[in-house]
């Protein structure tokens, strides 16, 4: 059940002097169970784009289809859509409000009108899924550490069992280890829940290791779209719009420019290590 965006436009303050085009003719097909990285600068339109996917913002032009239905048709159930396309905002811990962690996670499924038992079961599963220990379940969410709060907030969306899970900058403000833990957790979620993941980020290093497809946004348009290898092969274009390729890819490009026969489309640390070590041994053998 893919999401299809057909010539989607979004213009703020249309018809006034303050007119800003946040999205310009965006065409995308987001396939099931893909792990997608959505990259762009602040103001590139990536946050606006994801808010279109669950119907929080209505496009000023074009259509969005979910399961083959136009989500802005009059008889389309947008509440159900929001449960199926889960969106975790930036700094999601800022939306916690209940007296304890468990009730907060229950908020989403409860809004779906599910029976109490089902609500609690889902909340429990979601909290397990994000790796929060039982001892925290009945604490006030405001007493948790930053990383734990964020997990609770993510669980609040997972508890609705979405088929598509969108996370807007889920690692913002966390320390290196915290970033890695959240990203690994998202990868586990992807494997266990078999849902589509859309990871919004402005860091190439964050998504390079995880995503199977990368969409790069610039000035409200889709700038590049493809596998990490394909996207990072456009090193120059990316640098022109102020985005850097991952450090290892950058190094491989430089090695290639020196005239050594290496694959410059490498994106992960281990691949780069292998390539460099191989190169080193070959050169040594030759002499």
């Amino acid at each position: 059940m893919p999401i299809i965006l057909n010539h989607v436009n979004c213009i703020y303050e249309e018809g006034t002097t303050m007119e800003v085009a946040a999205l310009k003719d965006v065409n995308l097909v987001l396939q099931d169970e893909q792990f997608i990285g959505l990259i762009g600068h602040t103001g590139s339109g990536k946050s606006t784009l994801v808010q279109h996917l669950n119907g929080l913002i209505k496009p000023t032009g074009g259509e969005i289809y979910f399961n083959g239905e136009d989500i802005h048709d009059d008889d389309f159930d947008r509440k159900k859509l929001r449960s199926q396309v889960g969106l975790v905002f930036q700094y999601p811990e800022h939306q916690l409000f209940e007296v304890d962690v468990f009730s907060d996670v229950c908020f989403g499924p409860k809004n779906l009108g599910l029976p109490k038992k089902e609500v609690e079961l889902r909340a429990y599963e979601a909290l397990k899924m994000v790796g929060l220990e039982d001892e925290f379940f009945y604490q006030s969410p405001f007493d948790l550490s930053g990383g734990q709060k964020r997990r609770v907030a993510i669980a609040g969306v997972i508890a609705m069992k979405p088929q598509v899970l969108i996370l807007d900058e889920p690692t913002a403000g966390l320390d290196p280890k915290g970033r890695e833990e959240i990203l690994n957790m998202i990868r586990d979620l992807h494997e266990k829940m078999k849902c589509t993941i859309i990871l919004v980020s402005h860091s190439m290093d964050d998504v390079a290791d995880y995503a199977e497809r990368i969409i790069v946004m610039n000035h409200g348009e889709v700038f590049l779209d493809g596998t990490p290898k394909e996207v990072f092969s456009h090193k120059q274009e990316l640098e022109e719009i102020g985005l850097a390729v991952p450090t290892v890819t950058d190094i491989m490009h430089q090695v290639k420019e020196l005239g050594y026969p290496v694959d410059e489309s490498v994106t992960t640390l281990s691949d780069a290590t292998d390539a460099l070590v191989n190169l080193y041994h070959n050169v040594k053998k030759y002499y």
């Binding site: 450090t247 290892v248 640390l269």
Partner: peptide
């Protein structure tokens, strides 16, 4: 100590 080094250093 829950920290990492820059990617180049790691490579």
């Amino acid at each position: 100590l829950r920290l990492t080094v820059p990617q180049v250093t790691l490579l």
